[in-house]
Design a protein around this nucleic acid. Structure first.
Length: 277
DNA sequence: ATCCAGGACGCTG
DNA sequence: CAGCGTCATGGA
């Protein structure tokens, strides 16, 4: 059964795939597919709006896609900053998703010193090897591996998937989660406390912690600073700092409560070369 | 061959 | 606290 879940502006390809905030959606024809705990979910843009099919609850899916946020208001908030205004204009329909924190954690541990296409390949390999298998009209889809599955799989298995030196990070972090690391409580903690807690996990530094907080915990002020963002902060916003941690602090002070949402627009603008640095 | 990719980590000044 | 080499892997 096909359900219309919303008519708000949302560019599926841009949000689910191209913006590199999530790495596990695959395009099948004009649909985007991924498997979750309840089974496969398919999304499609039609003339009516965003249509969904499969195992989902409308409210949960709307939250996942951040459909309840007014991005027009966010744009206005930063309209006085030329680069920000330009980035928002360039990418209508880009939204910052609310992923399960465990998924964001694993994917962004994989992201360290890695490129987007390879992160996607590794995520897919992880799901194929350790995730639950589903089928949708003949096509195989794989759920995201549980913390238990990852904690128990053994380092050689992960090495064989080519995650490289990140293998022990993944296994140790999975163990910490299985042993009770409060992943689901991060959402309701103050940013500083949640960040301080996350960086105690192996493979998680300042930047990965900010990605987990922004993409998986609803902390819209979290501001991940990678090479692209560091560059654009200097060139576009005049932020002159030495370390990335200091740049993140300054960007948060400058942009406030929704700094992370704006970061995603700026990041994509810089990474795709849509705005010359 | 060298550099780079949504960096983290351990060691040295 | 800041700076630097190292860590797999694959594409440019």
């Amino acid at each position: 059964m096909i359900t219309l879940i919303g008519t708000e502006p949302l560019d599926l390809r841009l949000t689910l795939v191209d913006s590199a905030q999530c790495f596990r959606w695959t395009q099948i024809g004009d649909c985007f597919a991924a498997a979750f705990e309840g089974g496969p979910v398919l999304l499609r843009q039609s003339g009516r709006g965003i249509e969904a099919e499969g195992a989902f609850e409308v409210d949960a899916l709307r939250r996942y896609l951040d459909l309840d946020r007014d991005y027009g208001a966010v744009a206005l908030e930063y309209a006085h900053i030329p680069a920000a205004r330009r980035a928002v204009e360039l990418f209508p329909g880009l939204r910052v998703m609310n992923q399960p924190p465990w998924e964001a954690l694993v994917c962004f541990i994989l992201s360290a010193n890695n490129n987007v296409s390879r992160i996607r390949g590794l995520t897919d390999a992880l799901c194929r090897r350790l995730g639950r298998r589903w089928e949708w009209e003949g096509a195989a889809l794989y759920g995201f591996p549980s913390p238990e599955a990852l904690a128990a799989c053994g380092e050689p298995v992960l090495r064989a998937l080519k995650v490289g030196y990140r293998a022990p990070f993944l296994i140790e972090t999975a163990r910490r989660v299985v042993e009770g690391f409060p992943l689901d409580a991060l959402r309701d903690m103050p940013y500083d406390e949640a960040h301080r807690l996350l960086v105690t996990l192996p493979g998680v530094g300042d930047k990965v912690a900010d990605c987990v907080l922004l993409f998986g915990c609803g902390h819209t002020s979290a501001f991940p600073v990678d090479v692209w963002v560091a560059r654009l902060l200097r060139e576009w916003l005049g932020v002159a700092c030495t370390t990335r941690a200091a740049m993140a602090r300054q960007a948060r002070a400058l942009l406030g409560e929704n700094a992370g949402l704006m970061q995603q627009f700026l990041f994509h603008a810089a990474r795709t070369g849509a705005i010359e640095l």
